[in-house]
């Protein structure tokens, strides 16, 4: 929108959207600019990133068991019309 600097409250209010890359390019840059210059907000960013990494690590590696996938394929085949 404009070039104005963000203060800490504004930067932190945008942090969630920033981390999801959901801001306009302008605002992504403004938040990045603030984080580069502000250790306090950078600490918040690291905290959130560490949190998200932990969630991913814990939950993302889970896979549908092979025998379940096989059972579903089987069910599909027998469900096929005609």
């Amino acid at each position: 929108m404009n070039d104005s600097r963000l203060d800490c409250a504004e930067a932190l209010a945008l942090l969630q959207d920033y981390l999801k890359d959901e801001l306009t390019p302008d605002n992504q840059r403004r938040v990045a600019g603030h984080l580069a210059a502000c250790g306090h907000c950078l600490e918040h960013e690291h905290f959130e990133r560490n949190f998200l990494a932990a969630i991913q690590r814990a939950a993302k590696g889970i896979r549908c068991p092979d025998e379940v996938a096989a059972r579903i394929r089987q069910a599909l085949r027998s469900d096929t019309p005609d």
């Binding site: 560490n50 949190f51 990494a53 932990a54 969630i55 690590r57 814990a58 939950a59």
Partner: peptide, 11 residues
Amino acid sequence: FFHSLVDDRIL
């Protein structure tokens, strides 16, 4: 601390 938490706890 997030790094130290075991996956089961997080889940």
